[in-house]
Amino acid sequence: MTSLLTVSNLVKKFGGLTATNDVSFTVEKGDSLALIGPNGAGKTTIFSQIMGEVRQTSGTIHLAGRDIGGMSTAARIRHGISRTYQVPRPFSDMTVLENIRVGLMPDNLTQMVFGRVDHDREEALALSVGLAPQDLHRSPSELSMGDLRKLEMARTMATNPNVMLLDEVFAGLTVGEIAQISELIQSMRREGMTFLIVSHDLKALEPLVDRAIAINQGQKIAEGSFSEVMDNEAVVASYLGG
């Protein structure tokens, strides 16, 4: 049986800086894996390489046994993987529903022009991530950080992924909003969604994941259950140093 997502010997060099240094890991279907590490460790860069937004210097990425490491971002998304961004940057001059509409669009010009807009699906997605009905026709500039993260989740879910990569899901949120997003992730896990999650809020992260890997200076320094990784000396040192 092949794993759903397999990253092998990933290396990324930005000029003289090695942002990802020989990183390998796998995520099984239905699994939830935490990716932790201090600021600048290289977590976001790993996400960008998995999505094809940054091309790896070497190494391979497989999704359900298929080598996706050379595909365009759009093709990877068609194969069932998508991500949220650390800093939500929604389409600012559109309503919440229109933002989700972009996520739902088929990558086909004829269908884009002649196909019908599925308003029900847009609304259902918005409500499923916990956005309030009165927010649906608002502009993103009127939303709180928590609602922006929800919108980001909805737009990502609209592409119908099997694996979701969540970057700094809790950054900038209130305690109440953290609880809401956690509940959303938990319910999606129960429905079988596979996750790879980056967060600095380790307390909020712990209940959401089965396993964790720790990254420091682009290198994987620990892997195992969440508590094992958190107790690892190298991990503790990296957080103190970082």
């Binding site: 937004e53 998508s82 940057r89 389409f91």
Partner: peptide, 10 residues
């Protein structure tokens, strides 16, 4: 508005 997010929408 945000080309990266359009790409990220598939």
């Amino acid at each position: 508005m945000n080309e990266e997010a359009v790409r990220g929408s598939g």
